[in-house]
Amino acid sequence: MPSFKSHVVSFVLRHSRKQAFSSPENMQRWIAAARKTETHQPPAALRARLDIQTHTVDGFPVYEIAAKGGEQKRILYLHGGAYVFEITAYHWHLIGEMADRLGYGITVPIYPIAPEHNFHAMFGMVGGVYRQMLEETDAENIIFMGDSAGGNMAVVLTMMAAEEALPLPSRHVLISPGLDMSLANPEVFEAERNDPWLGISGGLEAIRMYSAGIDRSDWHISPVYGDLSVLPKTLMLIGSRDLLTPDNLIFAEKARAAGVDVEIVYEEGMVHVWPLIDMPEARRARQSIVAFLSQETRSSAAREDARPSTGTDWTTAEAAE
């Protein structure tokens, strides 16, 4: 059963953030308002406890959280925000917890966002970041992690690296990723009615501003249509009240058919990017990420489920705390 706090979060989102996705005009207004207050700076508490350095790639900041005690593994974290909003404190708190618990180095590019920039600028910058990482770290020690739009970027970046014959990351962690912008799946429209946060109309406006005229069914925008066989072992975290979930199920099935090892953590009643929000379900999700990346054995509280309508295997955390 979803926690009381998750119900509060859903209520607040429906009466606040949902407005941004309700129309193209509202999306533009929210972007304009966000530009007046956004900051990419890590919270002071994070800076106090972690070794964080900054450099630039293509003129944009890149934060580097140092690894602990000779640890070789590094995470490239690509933040969400519909390609139009800046990294937030919610992202930084997740990043900080991963740094604390795993001890890995974490690279956080503050990539150029739309409408001031587009697909080409974003991937030019994050591609440059990845090339720099490869100069310092073996690809087998690199993990791509991203939420929402950042999850999309992680998959697309891997596919683009494969095209260029670059070494590929060893794992993906995708939190509520956006993997199909084509609207080809009719289940998305039903899912929108149950989603207290995202909406199709405003979301399409964000894609229009970001996509540089590339067709929404092109794999550069919707990686579900790309060569999934190049992808590494993948953990996906999805919830039942997220309009992106139906497409994520299709992506998982297609990736598995292409030979990719895909693990899904599914939470009933959870909204878009719920692992970023401070509530019991998020704590379980973060433990799943740590287990996946550190090769720990999953908690006995996890169970395998099946969803007859899709045939997709699920791992669903029990509600007990």
Rank of each mutant, 00 (worst) to 15 (best):
W314D: 09
A82T: 00
S288Q: 03
S201K: 07
I238S: 12
L179E: 04
E281L: 01
Y111W: 10
Y111R: 13
L102A: 09
D147Y: 02
G80P: 13
M122H: 12
H220L: 15
A82R: 01
W197F: 09
K233E: 14
G311I: 09
A161I: 10
D51R: 03
A162S: 15
I95F: 04
A66Y: 05
R307M: 14
P115K: 02
M159G: 13
L293N: 02
N248H: 05
P275N: 04
A257Q: 10
Y225H: 05
R256D: 14
I207N: 03
A252N: 12
N118W: 06
P196L: 00
T158C: 13
E296S: 12
A33P: 04
W314G: 07
E192L: 02
P275I: 12
G81F: 03
T312A: 14
I221K: 06
G199L: 00
T37C: 06
V156C: 07
I250R: 12
F85I: 08
D180Q: 11
H120S: 09
F292N: 10
W197L: 14
D313E: 15
Y130N: 00
G146F: 11
T39W: 01
K68G: 08
G69S: 10
V9D: 03
Q295W: 07
L228Y: 04
S16V: 01
I95S: 10
A291F: 10
T54G: 01
R193Y: 07
P177G: 10
A82I: 00
H120R: 01
D58V: 07
G96K: 05
G128V: 00
I113H: 03
D227A: 13
A282S: 15
D305C: 09
A66G: 02
D195H: 12
E140F: 05
N118S: 11
A285K: 10
A114D: 05
D58K: 10
I238D: 13
L94M: 13
D278T: 12
T245Y: 02
R74Q: 12
D313K: 15
S294G: 06
I113A: 05
P61V: 02
K73M: 01
G178A: 14
Y111Q: 04
K36G: 04
